[in-house]
Each structure stands twice: as structure tokens, then as C-alpha cells.
């Protein structure tokens, strides 16, 4: 029975992820395999390697390979005000609740290169809440975190961001928040005044505080169902009653074991609110 044997490539991938965990403590073992497999095939091709086992040998013995591996194993795709309707809903429906607190904590989990974080900081500034808010921006990819801290984006991308900013209910022009240098847009460093950037893994690290809003968009889609449950559990423990959790446009708590710890707050935008249970 061929069926009962695992495919060689699947074995190799499992072993590679195991090796990465034991050698570097990066834990991709419970990520969604369909996408990991695709990206490892790309890595294998681009590195000119014959097998994934060969990649394992390299990365075990050569720590300089790690950043390159992380580029394949994490997906760094982000935009400012991606899905403007999400940010509009935060502005119009979540902000009025947050306004009632004297101080606020916001966690952008899996912040990548910073676009989602800055979208929120600008929104909070325009709503007069930035001063009383502490933002935590976390990720496992050090290169992405550095870029997030730098806050510099290609002018061509920023043109798209500006349009989305407008659709998201932006009050002025996005250009009020950056200056241009050649074909780069450099975000105003005052936007980072209340931001803490930090290396934090949703898989291997713990809760680090009580949050009023957690925005975690298109990060958990890369996790398998059990790992998603663990991470939603982490969010549940980080949110007081009535705290908010925002997910990506096609993510859902419907399939989560923690579903009844949350209620739909803005159903169409995947914004949830913590309940008592």
C-alpha cells in the first residue's frame, strides 16, 4: 500500500523544520504545510539545491543561512491600510469605545515591515488617542522588524497607500506623515514615539500584558488549525472583557475552539470583542 508511506518530500520538510527548531528555536512545525511546502520548493530551486535534505544540512551548519531561510519561511507581504474598510470600521466603531479608557495598549502581532502598525498609529493620532496609547509591534523576523523601525517605503507603493488611507477615512493627506527622499518616503519619526518594537513569537512566547486592541492580520493563516487555537487562546488571555481582536479579511474565529470567548463586533471586517466566558 503506497498510500501508507509518507512522501519523501514531506519527510524532508518535517525533518528540516525539526532541525530549525532544535538548532535555532524557530518553530515552524505547526504551520500550514501547503504554503510552507510551496515556499521551500522555491527556496530549493533558488538555492540550486537538489533536495530539501541538502538545505537542512546547510542551515544546520551555517548560521548565516538563517536569515535567508526566514525570508522563505515567513511571508512578508504588507500594505498600509490594506482593506480600507477594516480601518474605517476601527475608526468609526472601535475608537468610540477605546475613547472611554484613560490609557490604552494596542498590540500589532506579526507586524512585518510596519505598514499595519503605522496605519493604526496615524489613525489613533487623528482621533486624538495617540498620546494615551502604547503600541506593541512584534514579529519573529528580525529583518522585518528593522524595516518596521525604519519606516521607509518606496514612493510607488506609498501612492497606493495614500489612496487606501483616503478610503479608510483619513482626515488629511498621508503626505502629512512623511517626507520624500528620492524615490523613498520616510515616515515621520514622531509616529514611533509610543511604539515598542519587539521580537516575540506567537508560537513559543507568552502573554506579555493586557491589551485593549489586538490587530493580527494575515498571520494566523500560515498556521495549522491547532496552532491557531493556541494563538487565539493567547489573545484571549491578553484581552480583558470587551477588548478587541481584529483579523484579516478572510480569517475567522468560526472554526476556533475559543469561538465563544468572542462575539462578532463588526462581522464583515472580522473585528471581534472579548466576552465574559
Amino acid at each position: 500500500m503506497m498510500e501508507t508511506f509518507e512522501k519523501i518530500e514531506d519527510i524532508e520538510i518535517r525533518l528540516l523544520l525539526e532541525a530549525l527548531y532544535h538548532r535555532y528555536h524557530y518553530d515552524f512545525r505547526d504551520y500550514a504545510m501547503s504554503s510552507i511546502k510551496r515556499r521551500l520548493r522555491q527556496a530549493k530551486e533558488n538555492m540550486g539545491l537538489a533536495t530539501i535534505s541538502a538545505m537542512q544540512e546547510r542551515v544546520l551548519h551555517d548560521p548565516d543561512m538563517l536569515p535567508q531561510m526566514l525570508r522563505y519561511l515567513t511571508v512578508q507581504v504588507s500594505e498600509m491600510y490594506r482593506d480600507p474598510s477594516y480601518f474605517l470600521a476601527i475608526r468609526q466603531q472601535v475608537i468610540p469605545h477605546l475613547r472611554t479608557y484613560p490609557s490604552l495598549k494596542v498590540w500589532v502581532a506579526g507586524c512585518s515591515t510596519g505598514e499595519e502598525l503605522y496605519s493604526l498609529v496615524i489613525l489613533f493620532r487623528e482621533e486624538g488617542l495617540e498620546e494615551r496609547t502604547l503600541f506593541y509591534a512584534t514579529d519573529i523576523n528580525p529583518d522585518a522588524l528593522h524595516q518596521a523601525e525604519a519606516g521607509i517605503y518606496d514612493a510607488e507603493r506609498v501612492r497606493q497607500f495614500s489612496e487606501s488611507y483616503r478610503q479608510a477615512g483619513g482626515k488629511t493627506s498621508l503626505s502629512d506623515y512623511y517626507h520624500s527622499h528620492y524615490n523613498r518616503c520616510i515616515l515621520d519619526k514622531s509616529l514611533r514615539r509610543n511604539v515598542v518594537f519587539s521580537d516575540h513569537s506567537l508560537v513559543t512566547d507568552q502573554v506579555f500584558g493586557e491589551m485593549h486592541l489586538i490587530s493580527c492580520r494575515n498571520v494566523m493563516i500560515y498556521f495549522d488549525r491547532d496552532l491557531q487555537d493556541r494563538v487565539v487562546g493567547l489573545f484571549k488571555d491578553s484581552l480583558p472583557r470587551q477588548g478587541f481582536l481584529g483579523l484579516g479579511a478572510k480569517e475567522s474565529l468560526r472554526f476556533s475552539t475559543h469561538a465563544n470567548a468572542f462575539r462578532d463586533f463588526v462581522r464583515t471586517e472580522k473585528i471581534y470583542q472579548r466576552t465574559d466566558s
Partner: peptide, 12 residues
């Protein structure tokens, strides 16, 4: 297709 039971999305 993540497996025979689940769809997975990606924004790669």
C-alpha cells in the same frame, strides 16, 4: 488545499 479536510489561504 492543506489536506483533504481543510482549505488554507495565503497572501503570498
Amino acid at each position: 488545499l492543506e489536506d483533504k479536510q481543510n482549505i488554507a489561504l495565503s497572501n503570498e
